[in-house]
Design a protein around this nucleic acid. Structure first.
Lengths: 122, 122
DNA sequence: CTAAACAGTGGAGTACGGTCCAAGGTCAAG
DNA sequence: CTTGACCTTGGACCGTACTCCACTGTTTAG
């Protein structure tokens, strides 16, 4: 698959894909012409990359996870561990959000406890 | 309060605070010496800024919210609306995370359904 | 054979959120 | 009056995650 098609299928720009390649997030072969040639599985992988990214993982982290996965003796196990770790991260993040939500919710409708926030505004 | 003390109390660097000031996130008076002079309420405000930031709001958004708040005819109401909006954002974010968590959880322990993710790694 | 539509490279530029630094002013203590 | 801690400014620089551009090579359709 050429880069243009991959871009179309993932919604990424060709430049972004080349950027990802430079940073070790994707690897493709090369055709005799020098054109990049991507495997079909690259599509779900890139979709996954975007998901992980919106989750707050940096590209470097995602690349590192990918590497760990590739180098693992037992891939299935490594992946399970990775996913489990991500789930922990998600849980932690959700807990933070829940705490913040509670804090905000407690202030909504009260005319007073917001002083700490409002009295100072820019 | 001088900038150094504010920095110490908020955990921010003096440079970061000056950067925030340039970008309209904080305002302080000036002493005759030219030194910035911050009100005590700036401390909770900056702590709030950091919280909002970890929530995924950009400094520009936070500044804009602060402005809206300041300009609102009814501050208490404006703040309630703002908090309510943030809560919606949080809820959306949590829902995304929950969906992703479910997706990941479904794959953990299975040796097969992870192909889509694993077969492709960098 | 040529033109269009792809692809490649390198490098500059962008926005964000800062950090670091030099040169210099201010202030309190000794 | 000097020393040291603190403050000021402006500007350079960093990492992240890209985008845009010019110039060049390849492939494909007519």
């Amino acid at each position: 698959m050429l880069i243009g098609e991959l871009a179309a299928r993932t919604g990424l720009s060709r430049d972004a894909i080349r950027f990802y390649e430079r940073n070790g997030l994707v690897t493709g072969g090369r055709l005799p012409s020098g054109y990049r040639d991507f495997a079909p599985e690259t599509v779900p992988w890139l979709l996954y990359v975007r998901t992980a990214q919106t989750l707050g993982f940096s590209l470097a982290e995602i690349a590192r996870h990918g590497d760990e996965l590739r180098d693992a003796p037992d891939q299935a196990e490594a992946l399970s561990a990775l996913l489990a770790e991500k789930i922990r991260v998600i849980d932690a993040r959700m807990a933070e959000l829940a705490a913040l939500r509670a804090e905000l919710a407690a202030r909504v409708g009260t005319g007073c406890p917001l002083r700490a926030v409002e009295a100072v505004s820019p």
